[in-house]
Simulated assay, not measured.
Amino acid sequence: MELANEPIFQWISQFAYSPGTVYLVIVGMMLLSAVGLPIPEELTLISVGILAFVGKNPDVFPPPYAGAPVVNVHYAAIIAFVAVVFSDTLIYTIGRVFGRKLLYHPRVHKMFPPHLMKRVEEWTHKYGMYACGIFRFTPGIRFPGHLACGMMHFPLWKFLLIDGIAAAISVPTQIYLLAHYGEPILKKLREFKIVLLVVLVLVAVYFLVKKLRQRSAEKNA
C-alpha cells in the first residue's frame, strides 16, 4: 500500500492507536465548529475516517505494541453523530433563549452580516421544518441557520427530528466510507488535489496577466 510511505500517513497513524484521545477530540472539534469557528466538521470526519482506516490495517501501519487499542469505526461514528446533534441543538438553544438581540452582538454581526441572516430567515420561513436539514447539508450557514431556527422558536422536536435525520445520513457515512474504502478514495482525493492545484495556478496566471494588461493600458492612456 503506497499510501503508507507518505509522511502524512506515517505521522497520522500514531493517533489511530489512541482512541480515547480521538473520541475526545471529535467532541471538542464539533463544538468549536458549531459555535462558528472556521473549522469545517467535514475535516474532522475525514480525519477520523482515515484513523479508523489505519487502525483496520495493522499490517501496513504497525501498532506501537501488540494488542494496542484502535479507533473503532462504530464508536467513532456514534460519538460523531451525537456530538454533531448536541452541538446543533446547543446553537438552536442559544438562539431561542437570547433571541434577535444576538444579531447585534459584535462577533455575530461581524461573522454573519444582516443580509446573510435575512436570507437564512427567508429559507426558514419558506421551507419550514425542512430548513433544518438544508442548513445541515450547507457548510458556511449551519451556525446562522441553527441560530435562526432557535430565534424563530421553531419547535424543538421538529428541529431534533430533521437535524437528526440529516446528521444520520451525512456524518457516519463519511467515516464509514473512508474506514472501509480508504485507499481508493484517498488516491482519488490526492489526484483531485493535483488537478485543483493546476487549476488554481492557471487562474492565478490569468488574473496576473489581466492585471498587467490593465496597468499597461492605463499607462498608455
Rank of each mutant, 00 (worst) to 15 (best):
V25I: 07
R136W: 04
G28E: 02
M1H: 15
V27G: 00
G182F: 05
N5M: 13
I39Q: 04
A76K: 06
K158R: 14
Y75E: 14
L189K: 10
V22E: 13
P172A: 11
C132V: 08
F61T: 03
P113A: 03
P184Y: 14
A131K: 08
L197F: 14
A66F: 06
F9H: 11
G140A: 11
Y181G: 05
A166N: 01
Y206N: 08
A167K: 01
Y65V: 06
Q10D: 04
I91S: 06
W11I: 12
R190V: 10
G140S: 09
V120I: 14
I141R: 05
L189G: 15
V97P: 00
S216F: 04
M111C: 06
N72W: 01
V71A: 09
M111H: 12
I39E: 01
F61E: 02
N5K: 15
V82G: 13
P155I: 06
W11L: 13
L178W: 09
I194E: 14
S216T: 01
L3I: 06
L208K: 10
A80S: 07
S13C: 11
L3P: 09
P172K: 00
L103N: 07
I91C: 05
K158P: 07
T124G: 12
Y176D: 01
R96Q: 02
A221Y: 15
T173D: 00
L102V: 00
E42S: 12
Q174L: 15
F137M: 13
V97Y: 09
A166S: 14
S18Y: 04
K56L: 14
L32W: 01
P19T: 14
A66K: 15
V171F: 00
V25A: 11
F154A: 03
D163Y: 03
P114Q: 09
V71Y: 08
G49P: 07
I79N: 04
G128H: 07
I78K: 08
A80N: 01
V35G: 03
S87R: 02
R190P: 06
H74G: 04
L31S: 08
T44C: 07
H153M: 01
L178I: 00
I169S: 09
S47Q: 11
V48L: 07
S170M: 11
I12E: 05
H115M: 05
S13Q: 10
F61I: 03
P113N: 08
L116D: 10
L43C: 12
G55I: 02
L31I: 12
E191R: 08
G145R: 05
V205C: 10
G128D: 11
W11M: 14
F159R: 06
R107M: 13
C149I: 00
L202Q: 04
V73C: 07
I185R: 03
F192W: 12
P40F: 08
R100S: 03
N220Q: 14
V84M: 10
I78V: 15
T173A: 06
L32T: 09
K126E: 05
G164S: 14
V48W: 02
P155K: 09
F81R: 07
L196M: 12
P155L: 04
H180F: 15
P69H: 13
L32N: 00
V48I: 10
V209H: 10
